[in-house]
Design a protein around this nucleic acid. Structure first.
Length: 425
RNA sequence: GGAGAGGUGGCUGAGCGGUUGAAAGCGACGGUCUCGAAAACCGUUAAGCCUCAUGCGGGGCUUCAAGGGUUCAAAUCCCUUCCUCUCCGCCA
């Protein structure tokens, strides 16, 4: 949520930020108009309530002296009715205003590049060499078939297309990667491990910015008002909703594994083969709660932490900064990590790291007391994949495939897998 | 799922429908005392919003799990929902 007061004082800044995101910016005027109406009504109601309270107290005193108050009670009845009516219209206005505000994306950091889609994302750096193989690299679904790593048909049979059944070494690799990533972030970068629920309620989904506009991307239940979690960012960011964190313990860093569920409605075809786009996937997510002045520095270390994962997996990657048109709803600034996939011949997004500034914290009401000012302030929240598994597995298989059809495992994974390579035997 | 108990400020915990935004205690902060500290004593100690002044600040409204209702007036009465605890049932 954007700060309404800020929007009032700096409508131009908000408008420009919206335009950078391919919005018209007219939302700002709608908010301002509604806000003015609301304030007018609010002041009126405020004054009426003050009168009501004052006269109620008078009635209380007069009754104590056994005076007759029937005339007053009649008048007050009318006043109470008036207040009630005003309350209803005020509430309508307020809900409309909140509705508009809840749909405004976060303010972009001024450094975010201009651009309407991912083609305008800014290349920052790359790491590793694209392997030059003596043979034609196979795509991961082909390797998986030969090595019996996952079974797309049977996954479809039990749940539907886009739900993967991992088998044998494929299943073990999935488990190994999860354990290794959690250990890695815990030991090397000091993230505290949490294992959140895989379902989230409405408040949590709203707080993270997934509602009201992205409800369609989540799986819902017919017999409970819950959602299957689309990313661990949602439950972990909401951990301290309504709480006040201690300034001295910030920044707080958490690493969480969850399965992630996404409807990906309408997505089918060439970009969705194998593990490229699925309805359920595993992900280790990194979440930070920071003081406002730290958050952009923390974003840099967050990306580096995620990069170390793909480095240890020996996967060539590039880091790009997302442009205004490609950046997520809650993010003020974001980076993607894309690994090279020789079998598919594409860069695959395996991580997205965002600074959501106070956008989610305001929705969730997660604050800290600033020791300098003594005031309560919203924390900043950050999240980043560290990293998402399916495309990482795809890139791992494709980059480390050998001429003999086996797949070499990077040293980091060997202790977790118990073997140095995956073979069909 | 059934039965019961309960949800009040940072915490513990009072609260006959009418100066109770809320006693008391603890904690925290400030002060007195002290060379310093402890103890003792004194004081301060919720948040959000609107508005005036915009330097401190002033005025008003809201908030006692959440939502609705009764009433001139609700922490207090009624209804619904959520959560916690105990017992039962079911279950890996």
């Amino acid at each position: 949520m954007i700060d309404l007061k800020y929007l009032r004082d700096h409508p131009e800044v908000v408008r420009l930020s919206l335009r950078k995101r391919n919005h018209s910016g007219d939302e700002v005027d709608a908010v301002l108009t509604l806000d003015e109406e609301w304030r007018r009504l609010f002041t009126r109601q405020n004054n009426l309530r003050a009168e009501q309270k004052k006269r109620s107290e008078e009635i209380a005193t007069r009754k104590r002296y056994k005076e007759d108050v029937t005339a007053e009670l009649a008048e007050m009845k009318e006043l109470a009715q008036h207040v009630r009516e005003l309350e209803v219209t005020l509430k309508e206005k307020e809900e409309a205003l909140q509705g508009l505000l809840a749909r405004l994306p976060n303010l972009l950091h001024p450094s975010v590049p201009e651009g309407s889609d991912d083609s305008a994302n800014l290349f920052l750096r790359s790491w590793g060499e694209i392997p030059s193989l003596s043979f034609t690299p196979l795509p991961h679904w082909e390797l998986a078939k030969r090595l019996k790593l996952f079974d797309l048909e049977r996954g479809s049979k039990v749940a539907g297309s886009g739900f993967i059944l991992y088998t044998g070494w494929g299943a073990k690799l999935e488990r190994a990667l999860i354990n290794w990533m959690l250990d890695f972030h815990g030991r090397r970068h000091g993230y505290q491990e949490v294992f959140p629920p895989f379902v989230i309620n409405r408040e949590t989904a709203f707080g993270a910015g997934k509602l009201p506009d992205f409800e369609g991307q989540m799986y819902t239940f017919t017999n409970a008002d819950l959602f299957l979690n689309p990313t661990a960012e949602v439950p972990v960011t909401a951990l301290f909703a309504g709480e006040t964190l201690k300034a001295e313990e910030l920044p707080l860093s958490y690493a969480a594994y969850t399965a992630c569920f996404r409807r990906e409605a309408g997505a089918a075809g060439k970009d969705t083969r194998g593990l490229l786009r699925v309805h359920q996937f595993d992900k280790v997510e990194l979440v930070k709660f920071t003081r406002p002045e730290q958050s952009f520095d923390e974003l840099e270390t967050l990306v580096r932490d995620a990069e170390e994962i793909v480095q240890a997996l020996e996967l060539p990657y590039q880091v790009v900064e997302l442009c205004g048109g490609d950046i997520g709803f809650g993010a003020a600034k974001a980076y993607d990590i894309n690994v090279w996939s020789p079998g598919v011949g594409k860069w695959l997004e395996v991580s997205s790291c965002s600074n959501c500034t106070d956008f989610q914290a305001r929705r969730l009401n997660t604050r800290f007391r600033n020791p300098e000012s003594g005031k309560l302030e919203f924390v900043h929240t950050l999240n980043g994949s560290g990293v998402a598994l399916p495309r990482t597995v795809a890139a791992l298989l494709e980059n480390h495939q050998q001429a003999d059809g086996s797949v070499r495992l990077p040293p980091a994974l060997v202790p977790y897998m118990g073997v140095e390579r995956i073979t069909s035997a």
